[in-house]
Design a binder for these strands. Sequence first.
DNA 1: AGAAGTGATGCAACCGTTTGCACTAAAATA
DNA 2: TATTTTAGTGCAAACGGTTGCATCACTTCT
Lengths: 345, 345
Amino acid sequence: MQVTIKDVAKQANVAPSTVSRVIANSPRISQKTKERVKQAMEDLGYYPNVHARSLANRSTQAIGLVMPSAATKTLQNPFFSEVIRGISTKAHQNGYSLYMTTGVTEDEVYEGVISMVQGRRVDGVVVLYSRTDDPVVRFLQESKFPFVVVGKPFSDSSQVTYVDTDNYLAGREVTKYLHELGHECIAFVGGSQDLAVTQERVGGYKTALMEAGIPINEDYITSAPFMTTGGADAVKRLMSLEHPPTAIVVSDDMMALGVMSTLNEMGISVPDEMSVVSFNNLFIAEFSSPPLTSVEINIFGLGFEATNCLIEQMNEETPPYGKRVIVPHYLVVRQSCGGSGKKAK
Amino acid sequence: MQVTIKDVAKQANVAPSTVSRVIANSPRISQKTKERVKQAMEDLGYYPNVHARSLANRSTQAIGLVMPSAATKTLQNPFFSEVIRGISTKAHQNGYSLYMTTGVTEDEVYEGVISMVQGRRVDGVVVLYSRTDDPVVRFLQESKFPFVVVGKPFSDSSQVTYVDTDNYLAGREVTKYLHELGHECIAFVGGSQDLAVTQERVGGYKTALMEAGIPINEDYITSAPFMTTGGADAVKRLMSLEHPPTAIVVSDDMMALGVMSTLNEMGISVPDEMSVVSFNNLFIAEFSSPPLTSVEINIFGLGFEATNCLIEQMNEETPPYGKRVIVPHYLVVRQSCGGSGKKAK
DNA sequence: AGAAGTGATGCAACCGTTTGCACTAAAATA
DNA sequence: TATTTTAGTGCAAACGGTTGCATCACTTCT
């Protein structure tokens, strides 16, 4: 059977409570005893039973991760590996470990979160997506459980702690960048409309156009769930317009790959005949042909900061306040954007 | 405070033990009582405390995931999202949840696994990489803890349960495929040498060459840790040979992207001047330019099957036996392989 | 010398479940 | 009718820790 605290106590000739205090490094135990107990732990290969500890403590040293439902193939986006890497780095630094529930449907995910929270399996939760009026977020809020959202939560964002990129600004900047290269006919290809990120980026895009005095052409704005067609439909539709665009802002690198692949099929050369700029700067951006100009949003940092906020929140007994962290971004210029689009005018 | 089993018991006018038996759906409780207790649970919003349960039970309903250390950027490979999706699907189906430890260094990972296992935090472990003489695997083996490896564990593979692709066969098949297209000068670009998968694939590659009566040219066989240069070095070296190859077998789609990008920079056209075939068939394979011919290895299935084996193993009290599951693969032909390399002869 | 203070440790209750066993009342048997 | 079964519940002891409080052996002060 397992080595328990009692075995250690016996071995070191002390009471179990003393061993417990040694583990907690209580100042009330003399140095000598500490040494002796530690030696005993070593000798017996003792590891504390986490469940017993959590039970007595009312604290698990674990953070829950809520992923989007596995049904949407969103999960395949390397974005997630990278946020998780950020989360796990910070978590590990502070002695927390990670706990995941997943589910195929949204209901399953929701149930998973509930039993994770109510079952006291975790001390706090990181929500890895942000959707309009999400039941998970609502539940967490109502039960006053510590949680942080990566990305901007839609409803009541003032009450929710979240870390995000300034997607509005980023959208505006890339559009401005294209305009400065000489483009006037700039299209936007985004992901699912009910994701906050899409709406923000498209918002920035529109603002930049307005600032440049370019009228907004709704035909230029498309959105499609990725992974089904990879944006192929969007591209085909854009190119069949009377005045096809000369540049495209794509909401995600993965999607940009699909877009470029479709353009390639159609015999349209990037960057000569079409400029493409996108977001996230996944490592594939560097290795695509041509390498993608993309906005580095520091996904790792997003996860890291989120966890940081969460840990802060868990350690305060004040009710969760709506903190907001914006992680800086910058444009990484590669070779997917062409000089001037003027000729297309 | 939390709603406990005692509260439910009081509400339903029964003893806590009865409630517990209702949860476990014991046949010893009358239908009437069950109804009443269930109603009480509902009314109070009761969720069992997982830690108390695990403590009494000696079973957590959780599976541990061991990832490669975060230091190696391996994690960024979408491979992992996909295995995890497979694992979590199967796990969820059987009421298990997932638990992750990670660490930056290998030692941290090792420590994480130990405290996960010794601390009884999980019932079993899935190891998501396979390396020569890995301390984690050795530890799990020695402590007779249920575990499964995704990929072929190196040492003592007869004693270890694992699920894998037949990488040897796959390597042989793709090489044969290239040869049948007319290529004679076929190079191999692999990942880190101490990964089993690299060795197997290169083994198959060599066999196929021998079968075709083509002498093995060691200059054609290169390996480089990905992510540093993305295989750029390897390509440059190959192309500077006296007789550069006309086709390349690349050990991974990610790397193939890097290879193609470098070729593109060098002005070498794929598939016209160089054929590229790779493994894993990640979804980016479809969206690269040109779309990659790649071996579909069913990564999801790998994770799913691994979890299946693990759950089997956990439910038997027989000591873990070395079961071996091979998940079938097949070649997905796209547009990265050119007709005949004969002209290069 | 006796009182008060101090530092180190032990005792025992508690955290929320599970489960072997004892118990009761009703049904079946002799 | 007395006795054995049987079905349905409850009691209480684990599971392996934590922690408030009591205890005890010394110092230190008056």
